[in-house]
Amino acid sequence: MRKEKISYRKAIYKALDYALGSDEKTVFLGEDISAYGGAFGVSADLYKKYPTRVISTPISEGSFTGVAVGLSMTGYRVITEIMFMDFMTLAMDQIINHAANIHYMYGGQIACPIVVRTPAGGYRGYGPSHSKAMENLFMSIPGVKIVAPSSVEDAYGCFLSAVYDNNPVIFVEHKLLYNLEEEAELQSGKQVPLGKARVIKEGGDVTIVSHSYGVALAKEALADLEADGIDAELIDLRSIKPLDIETVIESVSKTGRLVTVEEGSIFGGVGAEVACQVIENCLQYIDGRIVRVGKADVPIPASLTAERFVLPSKGSIIEGVKKSLSW
């Protein structure tokens, strides 16, 4: 199969198409996923291809997530779309008290294979209720997996892995990645395993760990860093839970320095977890400051100018890297 230029949005579309097309026991639920094609245009014409299994729901995030739980307990794999990640708050009871617990609390009698897809992230001036990346909210919930790929091939492959996983998976799609186009080989049905990080660029001076749109920002920073003579290694976690800490440890053991980049809050964030596990496992190799780059501890303002001060940027990543090297 030859590589072709394809967008992140199209990759998710193709993965959805593959999942719905290859198994009649797969259902896709969400708001405005029919004629509107999904708020971000991901589901496009799927409702025509699978008219009974692509189901546009009322604006009832709490309950259509519960419907997904009921479907999954009775033999279906379910994909849901939560229009903006911020609206996850309305689905939290069904995700946290039901979906996440089902396999364990029912003694392994049953599993809950659902994927909750959700467009996330800021930089678009949408303000506090339409801009958040909230991966960290789910980190303390046993039973849930969290996946947030940054590349087109991973969007396709990780999505299919999420669909065929037997657990609830929160699948985070950054809005600014939808239009990302890459040469990609989307082999029909090929899965990218969850819990395996990807080393995007090797380097010896510092390890940058990120996921989702943070990887795109870090990639931009790499060129500037190189110009300053800094050879950074960039790791894309791809999935936050399960977390491939081994790849990070291996890298930090070599570079001795760690910078984490995320769009969510630093306090209680992904970087906090990664940094702590690094300290627990390879403190002896660390010879620089550990730096976390992420959102400031404030809501996300609507003003595009103000938003830039709050969210991570190429500049704050470069600054973070320099800080880690300056110790």
Partner: peptide, 30 residues
């Protein structure tokens, strides 16, 4: 929960079972 009896669980969240039952019903219909 007793799956062999098609009993999809008692529920500790008041109102938590209603959408799950709707999901089971949608499953039957599909």
């Amino acid at each position: 929960c007793v799956m062999e009896l098609n009993f999809l669980g008692t529920n500790g969240i008041t109102g938590g079972g209603l959408p799950i039952a709707a999901g089971a019903a949608l499953s039957i219909k599909l």
